[in-house]
Simulated scan of single mutants.
Amino acid sequence: MHQRKADGGIMVTASHNPREYNGLKIRGRSGESIFLGTGLEKIRAIASRGKTRRAKMLGNIEFNNSYREKYISFFSKHISIKRRIRVAIDAGGGSTALFLPQILSLFPNIEYTPLFFEPDGSFKKHPPNPLLPESQKWIKAELGRGKYNFGVAFDGDGDRVMFFDEKANLLDSQFVFLPIALKALEKKRKAVIVLPVDTSRAVRRAIEEHGGRVELSRRGYVFLQTAMRKFASPISVERSGHYFFKDFSYDDSGIFAFLAFAEYVSGSPLPVSKIVEPDIQFASTGELNVTVRDKARALADARNRYRRAPNVRVGEIDGVTIEFPDWWFNIRASNTEPVVRLVIEADTEELLREKRAEIEKLLGSP
């Protein structure tokens, strides 16, 4: 789109879902995502009227394979693998299987074992969501069979990737992101790094200690992209395995994230299990789904319970965030389920257990 200065773009994808969920991702003139609130509601209104009219000027279809070659060569301009590393890669039969062999041929220092590199739109081997335990069995088994630096598993359309260390442990995306972000700060020390509101304090503090400035954003593709463009943020991440890059038109790319992490690993003497271990340790629940009768009431109860407490900071960028010196939590309503998403982090495991019980009691459940 950027090279052709196109007025828009459309991708047919089911994302990390089976093929019967195929839909459209729509992009605007500058490559920004078109969602509800940024133009999708206008498209929906036009479609719902059920009336069509013939355009004054018809377009044409052009098949241009040169974009494939430009896409493949793009990565070699941004990534350098310093020493030989060995990785296991599960493409899951998804779209990355169409590109990975050619891309990896540009990086002879990456020795890899391919899993499910044959495109398969029916995903017979395993579901296209790498967060599901049943999708992780093959990559974990392969990592257990040989000496690898790390492993990766991509989702169906390649915009998401999950990482596994040399011991086959699933890694938290925000701690895979951290060394990549710190490397970006070496190039621009005072850069602004946009992060979702539920990002660990360990990540936020490490970025600030290395000269970066953290700006928090609502979770979600369109909100992170918008904030990144506003602050020219070089990189961002979501816990679900989406990594966003300024150099990739502020878009997410599982392949770019994999190669950027591989570059870091190739320049470090440490095993991956140590690379992703933060210097500052906090106890965390990860993201919890808590069933509630009334989502709006649950958020209000959480806000009202803590907002007048000493030494508290209250944020409402995305749901409600309550921060104390030694613990914090974020609670937000699900758009599709009768649950709230809850993340709690504390200085100690004991404090975490105490606060989790306290908040869950406050929220109640049917």
Results as ranks from 00 to 15, higher is better:
28 G>E: 02
317 I>P: 08
9 G>H: 00
238 E>W: 05
98 L>Q: 13
361 K>D: 09
198 D>N: 12
166 E>I: 00
1 M>Q: 03
270 L>M: 10
306 Y>H: 02
273 S>R: 00
5 K>Q: 14
363 L>F: 08
270 L>S: 14
234 P>R: 02
51 K>E: 15
334 S>K: 12
292 V>M: 05
322 I>K: 14
89 I>E: 00
4 R>C: 06
17 N>C: 02
45 A>P: 04
299 L>G: 05
142 E>D: 07
322 I>C: 12
108 P>Q: 07
213 R>A: 15
12 V>S: 03
92 G>V: 00
87 V>P: 10
305 R>A: 12
252 D>C: 11
336 T>H: 05
325 P>M: 08
214 V>E: 03
262 A>W: 10
153 A>E: 09
316 E>P: 11
289 N>I: 09
317 I>Y: 05
164 F>P: 07
85 I>R: 04
94 G>C: 02
254 G>R: 04
32 E>C: 04
245 F>I: 07
151 G>L: 13
196 P>C: 03
165 D>H: 12
271 P>H: 05
21 Y>V: 04
97 A>K: 09
91 A>C: 15
166 E>M: 04
243 Y>A: 01
264 Y>G: 07
21 Y>L: 05
193 I>N: 00
74 F>W: 12
228 M>C: 06
249 S>R: 00
319 G>C: 12
15 S>W: 04
161 V>L: 03
349 E>W: 14
1 M>L: 08
40 L>C: 05
281 Q>D: 10
275 I>W: 00
153 A>R: 10
306 Y>K: 13
33 S>R: 09
360 E>G: 08
209 E>L: 07
327 W>C: 13
288 L>K: 13
39 G>A: 02
158 G>E: 01
309 A>E: 08
86 R>F: 11
281 Q>I: 14
142 E>F: 05
339 V>C: 07
183 K>L: 04
88 A>P: 02
74 F>K: 12
281 Q>L: 10
205 R>C: 15
291 T>R: 14
111 E>G: 09
283 A>H: 01
36 L>A: 02
161 V>C: 00
66 S>A: 13
331 I>K: 10
